[in-house]
Design a protein around this nucleic acid. Structure first.
Length: 826
RNA sequence: GCCGGUGUGGCGGAAUUGGCAGACGCGCGGGAUUCAAAAUCCCGUGAUAGCAAUAUCGUGUGGGUUCGACCCCCACCACCGGCACCA
């Protein structure tokens, strides 16, 4: 027993014991209620940062608490280990991505263990290992078999300097995240997953996710972007073609004075072919292709476009209206063409003003301040219909369904729903990812590799130049193969999968991490799923969390899992900031978990992280605050050390406490109220900061009690053991050590969570507040549950109350038992 | 522009949801201990006035509801985050 808190020794000792005892290994057990706690697994960059430390500290408190509370807890960890940084290391430092990644994972293992996290390491997964990506490929083939994976030509983000495709998330403000070159569009043949088939379900199910923050649900709703409207057909003059548009504002159809097609619209070529504007149109199309996203989508840029020399017929009034192409109309949304109503749409208004097009108002704001025939901006609010034939006078909102019905009768329009969500482009021209297990045969077309031949292994004979197509193309062994259908020579797909696929089902693999016949056995997934508590950064609110939901729905649909949604409760932790800004290299305000562990130990790091702010809020890093957390642990250690050495001596305390003095009762109250508070704060609302503050209050009370006259040994012993137990989910090493010092041979991590004694929480005397007109005037000590009349009389007899009510009329008396007596006087 | 969030001491944050505003921690001030210092233990610490008891003010701003509002309602301001030419 050391007289000082030697954190390094203690932490190393207990980490070894937990590992040797396989303390957190878990198996399916129907006799207990299960609880699955999951933190978003990291990319193995090799260095744990404070965001990781926060994420895992939160998860670990929950996991340890739930285990002590009697649940069968699954708390796994692994690595999202495919991805670009490994390949950049290969290009820049000539290290193989596999070597780089495996070394990093070893280092991360060490760092995670040093935090004392309660993982079941036997279930570790790494997405870059063939035993994982084999099943990733298998799942991809199931998508393909259901018609949900397909290949098509489409414009994609292209970095002309790196010569590669970029994912949307790798385009930062219109520039390549690596070389900062402006990104352009290029047509390439790519694999897609048909997530749009699940758009409605992804949207509707959000209402059922009660354990998710509204913020995340709203972000997903906006991303899916469902809107109701109509498709309307416009005949093109002197052509047999019909131009279909999508609109949410069918009510404004009479105000459509021109039309706009996307420059990529498939009709454009034919409509302009051979005309005198053909050259202009082609030039415009070309310029749009070379525009960066940033220019093209900026709302501040002036509208551009070209008249294509053609006219359409507005079906409601047979007016001939000119057709333009402009890049403000996107091919990927709706039908790629719009009817333009400049009076009631700001974008159309801007365009019409620039090109001198007619503006016809059809909704009257009925506001004398607005001159309908000289609008300064589009009028987009509610009003009554004008210039609209038989619809005149109707409220425009009501006119929408009326107009659609009428169009329907005429056979020129239909009710439609549109989504903003697009299919998921999953091809990457990269090496360090899961090979897409598809083979191209001249005769059979694209066919999947036979499932028994999986995994399609990543080749190792490749060159990393950072230029051109996927490095896999340079392999001499990979590309040439035979067609699984007809046996003729064929070629493998050389692109790999977006790493977001790997992370879309890893939580299922944890439930059965070593299965060699399937991604996971259904019984195991059904035992553990859903994830009861998922914890991670809000930056994954849309992509990862939506892709995972999509995968879970699909795997449910093909009978592999009973559950349709993967995550029951979601906690999005706040950022770690310092000096008012996010920790970053460029600002030089980074504090690494490693340096805190070195100086104060992991328990202090965990305690500070959990104490300084509630988990979903920003955490403002403070070196003095860390010092304070360390001081608290020293204070706890000293209190218990002194107790064992000087107070308890060699005597082991047991038995019931005798008659309690006033001070004893107070301590007993503190013991029980602390258990109650911590149980509620950790088990229910995840307010770790207030749970810790209540434990600090207990420690303060124990010092005060100890410094008093007489010590009731059994009671004080109970306080000591309670303290060590309820603190253990937060700072497990020091608590296990103190528990052992107290003479126990069992382990805290296995110990039952304490319950509290309600009767100890009932005080004999309660302080009741006395108010006059709602203002605090005095306090009154009264026996618990004193009835109304007695309380009021006692309050009335107070000097302060007498003085202030004298000569005034008491209009009303408000009484709340054990809380308030309030006199309302005039 | 649209959607979401947050505004409380010198600082991080409490207030169990309409009932003692400022728990707990940091910082600061004082005391004990020490030859001295560090560490530790104890006390104090929203503002203003007062020796004091005490009084007045006080949760971004302005109004409202209520015996009583950080909490509910209306209007506004500031900051942060997400999406953004989605028809």
């Amino acid at each position: 027993m050391k007289d000082r808190y030697e954190f390094k020794e203690i932490e190393a000792k207990w980490q070894k014991i937990w590992a040797d005892e396989k303390a957190f290994k878990t198996v399916e057990d129907d006799s207990k209620e299960k609880f699955y706690v999951l933190e978003m697994f990291p990319y193995p960059s090799g260095k744990l940062h404070m965001g990781h430390a926060r994420n895992y500290s939160i998860g670990d408190v929950i996991a340890r608490f739930k285990k002590m509370a009697g649940y069968n807890v699954l708390h796994p960890m692994g690595y999202d280990s495919f991805g670009l940084p490994a390949e950049n290391a290969a290009i820049q430092h000539n290290v193989e991505p596999a070597k780089w990644t495996y070394e990093n994972m070893e280092e991360m293992d060490r760092q995670l263990s040093s935090m004392g996290l309660s993982y079941d390491w036997d279930r570790k997964v790494a997405t870059c290992k063939p035993d994982y990506y084999r099943w990733m490929q298998w799942i991809f083939i199931q998508f393909y078999k259901k018609g949900l994976a397909y290949k098509k030509d489409n414009p994609v983000n292209w970095c002309p300097s790196c010569n590669t495709v970029l994912a949307n998330e790798q385009v930062v403000e219109g520039k390549c995240e690596r070389c900062h070159t402006e990104v352009t569009k290029k047509n390439l043949s790519q694999w897609y997953l048909k997530i749009t088939d699940y758009a409605d379900r992804l949207l509707d199910n959000l209402d059922k996710l009660e354990g998710w923050p509204d913020k995340v649900k709203t972000m997903q709703r906006n991303w899916i972007g469902k809107s109701y409207g109509a498709n309307i057909d416009f005949r093109i003059k002197d052509s047999d073609k019909v131009l279909e548009v999508f609109t949410t504002r069918a009510d404004t159809l009479f105000g459509a004075t021109y039309m706009v097609m996307s420059p990529e619209h498939p009709y454009v070529d034919e409509l302009v072919s051979g005309s005198e504007v053909e050259a202009d149109v082609r030039e415009y199309q070309e310029s749009v292709k070379h525009k960066s996203d940033i220019e093209r989508t900026s709302t501040t840029t002036e509208k551009t476009g070209v008249f294509i020399g053609r006219y359409a017929i507005n079906p409601v009034n047979n007016k001939e209206i000119p057709i333009y192409i402009s890049d403000y109309v996107l091919m990927g949304y709706g039908t790629g063409a719009i009817m333009a109503v400049p009076a009631h749409d700001q974008r159309d208004f801007d365009f019409a003003k620039k090109f001198g097009l007619e503006i016809v108002p059809v909704v009257d704001p009925e506001n004398p301040d607005i001159d309908l025939y000289d609008l300064k901006e589009a009028f987009v609010a509610e009003g009554s219909m004008i210039n609209s034939g038989k619809f005149d006078g109707m409220n425009n909102i009501q006119a929408i369904p009326a107009m659609i019905d009428w169009l329907n009768e005429q056979g020129i329009g239909d009710k439609t729903v549109n989504f903003r969500l697009r299919d998921w482009l999953i091809s990457r021209q990269r090496y360090w990812g899961t090979p897409i297990p598809m083979i191209y045969c001249e005769d059979c077309g694209w066919v999947p590799e036979k499932e028994e031949n999986l995994p399609v292994l990543l080749p190792t004979d490749v060159e990393f130049t950072g230029k051109g197509e996927s490095p896999i193309a340079s392999s001499k062994t990979f590309v040439d193969t035979i067609c699984p259908v007809c046996g003729k020579p064929a070629k493998r797909e050389i692109d790999t999968m977006d790493t977001f696929l790997d992370s879309s089902w890893y939580y299922l693999r944890y439930t059965d991490a070593h299965n060699e016949n399937l991604p996971f056995a259904k019984e195991k997934a059904d035992y553990w799923m859903k994830v009861d508590q998922y914890i991670g950064g809000v930056e994954h609110a849309i992509l990862h969390l939506m892709y995972a939901r999509f995968f879970q729905m699909f795997l449910h649909d093909i009978g592999m899992s009973d559950v349709e949604e993967p995550f029951e409760n979601l906690l999005t932790q706040g950022m770690v900031i310092k000096d008012g800004a996010k920790m970053s290299k460029s600002l030089g305000n980074i504090v690494s978990p490693a340096e805190i562990q070195e100086k104060y130990g992991s328990d202090t790091a965990r305690l500070f992280i959990l104490f300084a702010a509630p988990p979903e809020k920003e955490l403002d890093w403070s070196d003095e605050g860390v010092e304070g957390s360390f001081r608290f642990l020293c204070r706890v250690y000293r209190l218990i050390y002194d107790y064992i050495k000087d107070i308890r001596g060699d005597e082991i305390v047991c038995g019931d406490s005798a008659a309690l003095t006033e001070a004893d009762k107070n301590l007993n109250y503190m013991i029980n109220s602390t258990i109650k508070k911590v149980t509620e704060d950790v088990g229910g609302r995840f307010n770790f900061n207030t749970a810790i503050s209540s434990i600090m209050e207990l420690v303060n009370a124990m010092y005060k009690y100890r410094n008093g006259k007489e010590i009731n040994l059994p009671l004080f012993n109970k306080a000591v053991e309670t303290l060590v137990t309820v603190l253990s989910p937060f700072t497990p090493h020091i608590c296990e050590e103190l528990w052992t010092m107290l003479g126990h041979e069992d382990r805290l991590y296995n110990k039952e969570w304490p319950s509290y004694d309600e009767s100890a929480l009932v005080l004999d005397e309660i302080e009741v507040v006395v108010q006059i007109n709602g203002k605090l005037k005095d306090r009154l000590k009264l026996p618990n549950n004193t009835e109304k009349e007695v309380s009021i009389e006692a309050a009335k007899s107070l000097d302060r109350v007498k003085a202030e009510t004298d000569g005034k009329e008491i209009v009303k008396i408000i009484f709340i038992p054990n809380k308030i007596v309030n006199f309302v006087v005039k």
